[in-house]
Design a protein around this nucleic acid. Structure first.
Length: 738
RNA sequence: GCCGCCAUAGCUCAGCGGUAGAGCAACGGUUUUGUAAACCGUAGGUCGUGGGUUCGAUUCCCACCGGCGGCUCCA
């Protein structure tokens, strides 16, 4: 006698168990027709699911009540489309073995093992799509068949696909799956009912459950039949590893997408095209904002004059906010001695992600004369002196230097490193003078350029590079000052994001993994710092997630994450509490008790790096920077040469007021000049002809406005745009015309 | 780093076993123009680099460099 609660709160009672489809039919035939699946107690299920107990039920259809595409419906459609694509691919390449094919937010993929002599190529896409469309046209039902775990497993063993056997094993005997896999594949091991009491495996047939009909081990759910998938497209190929392990089998990941209707697919593809136009790499080239040069090196950004203006304005802006918060500015070199990084612990612990050390030529010559192997050279470079080792060992219990790295002084090879972080330099600045509790916190800020050896496949425009400038600072504070300083860091980020109109960001709070003992610092300190991070994130009023285990070993952290135009997430700013650095560098301040105390260090870079931040900002504004940031703020467009003199006067007046202005003296018609200025996304165009010269006025056009704004006196415009720039867009010139 | 794809003028792209073509940009000229592309002309490329196949390679093959999409990694 199931009592079923519907989304509107009404309750329907049935005499006997009933399928979700029958409930939909009982509500109305049109609903039943539109139904793609259902949600039972919030869980997405097949429409054919038999309901034999009290529950809440929502029928899932293409559209939600407000006519938006239903994300649950898209999940069903895409998961089903993944099956259809897999079947289509297996028709074309019968030896292809299926591994894993989940739905995604924008589509789906299927990881497939292709035979080496028959990989899937992009040229196959048309054929795959044609097969998919055939399967859709056949409108075959998706039919679920449940079996007991032993039965299902032996069936898969009969098929002989290790990937499916692995999937099934992970589902029913997760703890022993890895250990038993080989036995299961070879058939020496069977799964018995006692291994996994009550566990089930489900299969989905694309059609009636008969031999010869395509089917796959699958948890489901699916749409009722293949005909319910309105539009599909095979998007791209990529590689992946089985279980994400690079030492494991290499698979081909085939990406596709599916929608309820062709129109929605077209709209999505169109949106992708539009997004590509906003890509910072495209706009960066068009507007000459930056350049990455093959001859200079991969991942090394050249800031061209236009981009440099944007960066400089941002730095000035941050700098002015930092001043308000009591920061002091420092400058440090781009390299530091290996001893510095051995003390901080960066070298050689992170040597894989750093540029290799710089060693004096004489030392290398000497080692060559001695006939040292490369490995021996590295041993001597990475080694530490007994003196340095003992110093660190005495001072910290957290991280010590492995005894085999301590080598005699005469074997040591000293050298330098391009700095991977700014903090060691800043630590030494702190240590260079005595500090009293009265002058804490000490806030050292620097736009510090760091170099990291990112894997070549990871490099990406300005968002992932090998040399970048952090808007870095290190706050050396007392334990009690930590919460207020964290709060201050977040305030800064909030102000900056607000002025730039960036609303689409989220915050991750990285906390301890409760089961790990790798952390340094006392439990009490951690408790306080984590609470401070959470409180600060909460007061910021943005979505944040607690992420246990994501803290660094030296302290909890707060990360800011934004999405780029193609939906990839990039970490921008970070605020990290550090209990370790002060110990390693033996930093101290004198407390009110006239005794030395250990400061806590907060690393913070609210933008992360100027490169990544500007990249994201280019996409955020689609290159149309607000006036205060725009490389070119005003372009003066004389109607003809006859107004050239007045145009020059206008240009001079604006330049004298500190406005970045250019004059278009080309022999073009005004229409062409406007088009050109629009292409360069100049915020304001000043059109001047004889009428304007006569009246000492300007005719104004603002970017994004289809027609001109009207006229304004020259002096009035100069004041208005100065105001817009000075207020960073709070008072705009345009606002004076409405 | 791994897998796949791509590489032609400053930019966007066409072409193809017989030593290259368009549009825009650039430059010169005509026009002197009132709000999103006036007209005419000129110049510009050892077709990413190095090998190989071939009578002949920008085109086919291999390697490298670089880019793109993923994977992995990311203090």
């Amino acid at each position: 006698m199931p009592r079923i609660t519907l989304p509107d709160g009404s309750i329907k009672e049935f005499a006997s168990p009933i399928t979700a489809r029958q409930v939909a039919e009982a509500i109305g035939p049109r609903l039943a027709q539109a139904a793609l699946g259902c949600k039972i107690d919030g869980e997405l299920r097949d429409l054919s699911t038999l309901i034999d107990r009290d529950c809440s039920l929502a029928i899932v259809t293409e559209k939600t009540r407000d006519k938006q595409a239903d994300p649950d419906a898209l999940m069903l459609i895409r998961h089903s489309a993944a099956h259809i694509m897999a079947e289509a691919i297996q028709r074309i390449v019968p030896e292809a073995q299926l591994v894993y094919g989940p739905p995604l937010a924008t589509g789906f993929y299927y990881d497939i093992k292709f035979p080496d002599n028959r990989p899937l190529k992009e040229g196959d896409f048309a054929a795959v799509e044609a097969e998919m469309k055939k399967i859709i046209a056949e409108d075959r039902p998706f039919t679920r068949v449940d079996s007991s775990a032993p039965e299902g497993m032996s069936r898969l063993q009969g098929e002989g696909s290790k990937y499916k056997i692995d999937n099934a094993a992970r589902a029913v005997i997760p703890k022993r799956a890895a250990e038993l896999l080989n036995g299961l594949v070879s058939g020496h091991v069977a799964v018995t009912e006692s291994d996994c009491p009550g566990a089930k495996l489900s299969f989905y047939y694309t059609g009636e459950p008969m031999p010869g009909v395509w089917n796959d081990l699958c948890r489901g759910p699916h749409v009722p039949s293949t005909g319910r998938i309105g539009a599909v497209k095979v998007m791209s190929l990529a590689s992946s590893y089985w279980h994400g392990d690079e030492n494991s089998d290499r698979l081909t990941r085939v990406y596709g997408t599916a929608f309820a209707t062709q129109a929605e697919l077209d709209a999505y593809l169109n949106q992708l095209d539009e997004a590509k136009k906003r890509d910072h790499r495209v706009i960066g080239k068009q507007l000459r904002l930056f350049h990455i040069d093959e001859m200079v090196g991969q991942g090394l950004v050249l800031w061209t004059p236009n981009g440099s203006i944007v960066r400089k304005e941002l730095q000035n802006f941050i700098g002015s906010e930092l001043k308000k918060q009591g920061y002091t500015e420092v400058f440090t070199p781009h390299i530091g001695s290996l001893d510095l990084y051995k003390t901080s612990g960066h070298f050689p612990y992170y040597k894989e992600s750093q540029f290799p050390p710089i060693v004096e030529r004489d030392a290398l010559d000497r080692l060559a004369d001695e006939g040292c192997s490369c490995a021996e050279v590295m041993r001597r470079v990475e080694g530490v002196s007994a003196h340095l080792a003992s110093g660190i060992n005495e001072r910290t219990k957290a991280q010590t230097i492995a005894p085999d790295r301590v080598i005699p002084d005469e074997q040591l090879v000293s050298g330098f490193m391009l700095k991977p972080m700014n903090c060691p330099h800043h630590a030494r600045i702190f240590a260079s003078a005595p500090h009293s509790y009265r002058d804490m916190p000490v806030r050292l800020a620097e736009f510090g350029t760091v170099y990291r050896w990112e894997q070549s496949g990871e490099l990406n425009g300005m968002t992932r590079v090998r040399g970048f400038t952090q808007d870095d600072a290190h706050l050396f504070c007392t334990e009690e000052q930590v919460p207020a300083e964290i709060q201050g860091c977040l305030e800064l980020v909030k102000v900056i994001f607000k002025v730039l109109g960036m609303k689409d960001y989220r915050v991750r709070v990285g906390m301890r993994d409760p089961d790990s003992g790798k952390y340094t610092g006392t439990k009490e300190s951690w408790d306080k710092a984590e609470a401070a991070c959470l409180a600060a994130a909460e007061s910021l009023g943005v979505p944040f997630s607690k992420e246990p285990g994501e803290a660094a070993f030296y302290g909890p952290k707060i990360d800011f994450v934004v999405k780029d135009v193609i939906g990839r997430e990039w970490q921008l700013g970070t605020v990290q509490v550090d209990y370790n650095m002060a110990i390693r560098f033996d930093l101290s301040y004198i407390g009110p008790d006239n005794k030395p105390h250990r400061p806590v260090v907060i690393h913070r870079a609210p933008f992360g790096s100027m490169e990544r931040f500007c990249g994201v900002l280019i996409e955020h504004f689609a290159g149309a920077f607000p006036t205060w940031l725009a490389p070119e703020q005003v372009r003066v467009l004389p109607i003809s040469e006859k107004t050239a003199d007045y145009a020059r006067q206008v240009e001079q007046a604006l330049r004298a007021a500190g406005v970045r202005v250019t004059l278009d003296e080309t022999n073009e018609r005004i229409q062409a000049k406007i088009k050109d200025a629009a292409d360069w996304k100049v915020p304001y165009m000043v059109v001047v002809g004889p009428r304007d010269a006569e009246a000492s006025q300007v005719s104004l056009r603002a970017r994004g406005h289809m027609k001109d704004l009207g006229t304004m006196s020259l002096t009035g415009f100069v004041e208005a745009i100065k105001d817009e720039i000075a207020t960073r867009g709070a008072n705009t010139v345009v606002s004076r015309f409405v």
